[in-house]
Amino acid sequence: MAMNGTITTWFKDKGFGFIKDENGDNRYFHVIKVANPDLIKKDAAVTFEPTTNNKGLSAYAVKVVPL
């Protein structure tokens, strides 16, 4: 089920960042999981599918909501 969130941290040079989800949890995401990576920036609103990996909470099918 899709969730909403906000990008809180973005490491462009490393290709990953973190999203604060609607429950207040931080989720890892990688640029290859983003549909529109050219719009990635700190504080951008996103929708995504929540999941977990071996390191904890993460996100896939991430879409940055255009302003």
Score class of each variant (00 low, 15 high):
1 M>H: 13
1 M>P: 12
1 M>F: 11
1 M>Y: 12
2 A>H: 12
2 A>E: 11
2 A>Q: 13
3 M>R: 07
3 M>A: 04
3 M>W: 06
3 M>G: 04
3 M>F: 07
3 M>H: 06
4 N>G: 09
4 N>T: 13
5 G>P: 00
5 G>H: 00
5 G>M: 01
6 T>A: 05
6 T>C: 11
7 I>F: 01
8 T>W: 08
8 T>C: 10
8 T>H: 09
8 T>Q: 09
8 T>L: 10
9 T>S: 14
9 T>I: 14
10 W>T: 00
10 W>C: 03
10 W>M: 03
10 W>P: 00
10 W>R: 00
10 W>Q: 01
11 F>E: 04
11 F>G: 01
11 F>S: 05
11 F>V: 06
11 F>K: 05
12 K>A: 12
12 K>D: 06
13 D>M: 11
13 D>Y: 11
13 D>I: 10
13 D>N: 12
14 K>L: 11
14 K>H: 08
14 K>Y: 09
14 K>P: 05
14 K>S: 08
14 K>R: 13
15 G>W: 05
15 G>F: 06
15 G>D: 05
15 G>N: 07
16 F>D: 02
16 F>Y: 14
16 F>C: 05
17 G>E: 00
17 G>V: 02
17 G>Q: 01
17 G>L: 02
18 F>A: 02
18 F>W: 10
18 F>S: 04
18 F>C: 07
19 I>L: 08
19 I>Q: 00
19 I>S: 00
19 I>P: 00
20 K>D: 04
21 D>Q: 02
21 D>H: 02
21 D>A: 04
21 D>C: 03
21 D>G: 04
22 E>S: 10
22 E>N: 07
23 N>M: 10
24 G>D: 05
24 G>S: 05
25 D>P: 01
25 D>V: 08
25 D>R: 08
25 D>Y: 08
25 D>F: 09
26 N>C: 14
26 N>E: 11
27 R>T: 01
27 R>Q: 01
27 R>M: 02
28 Y>P: 01
29 F>D: 00
29 F>N: 00
29 F>S: 00
29 F>V: 04
29 F>C: 02
30 H>F: 07
30 H>E: 11
30 H>Q: 09
30 H>G: 06
31 V>W: 10
32 I>S: 15
32 I>E: 14
33 K>V: 15
33 K>Y: 15
33 K>N: 15
33 K>E: 15
33 K>P: 03
34 V>Y: 03
34 V>H: 03
34 V>M: 05
35 A>I: 15
35 A>F: 14
35 A>V: 15
35 A>W: 12
36 N>G: 03
36 N>M: 05
37 P>Q: 05
37 P>A: 07
37 P>K: 07
38 D>M: 10
38 D>C: 13
38 D>Q: 12
39 L>E: 10
39 L>D: 10
39 L>Q: 14
39 L>P: 03
39 L>M: 13
40 I>S: 02
40 I>V: 09
40 I>Q: 01
41 K>N: 07
41 K>S: 09
41 K>E: 10
41 K>R: 14
41 K>C: 11
41 K>I: 08
42 K>Y: 06
42 K>H: 08
42 K>L: 13
42 K>W: 06
42 K>I: 14
42 K>S: 06
42 K>C: 09
44 A>Y: 04
44 A>V: 09
44 A>R: 09
45 A>S: 11
45 A>H: 14
45 A>M: 12
45 A>D: 07
46 V>Q: 01
46 V>E: 01
46 V>M: 02
46 V>H: 01
46 V>W: 01
46 V>T: 02
47 T>D: 03
47 T>P: 01
48 F>K: 00
48 F>E: 01
48 F>H: 01
49 E>S: 14
50 P>I: 06
50 P>C: 05
51 T>F: 14
51 T>W: 15
51 T>R: 13
51 T>V: 14
52 T>I: 10
52 T>V: 12
52 T>G: 10
53 N>W: 09
53 N>I: 07
53 N>D: 09
53 N>M: 08
53 N>Q: 07
54 N>A: 14
54 N>F: 10
54 N>G: 12
54 N>D: 12
54 N>C: 11
55 K>N: 10
55 K>C: 13
56 G>V: 07
56 G>W: 09
57 L>K: 09
57 L>A: 05
57 L>H: 05
58 S>K: 05
59 A>Q: 02
59 A>W: 03
60 Y>F: 12
60 Y>T: 15
60 Y>H: 15
60 Y>W: 10
60 Y>K: 15
62 V>M: 03
62 V>E: 00
62 V>D: 01
62 V>F: 02
63 K>M: 12
63 K>Q: 11
63 K>L: 11
64 V>M: 04
64 V>Q: 00
64 V>N: 01
66 P>G: 12
66 P>K: 11
67 L>K: 12
67 L>E: 13
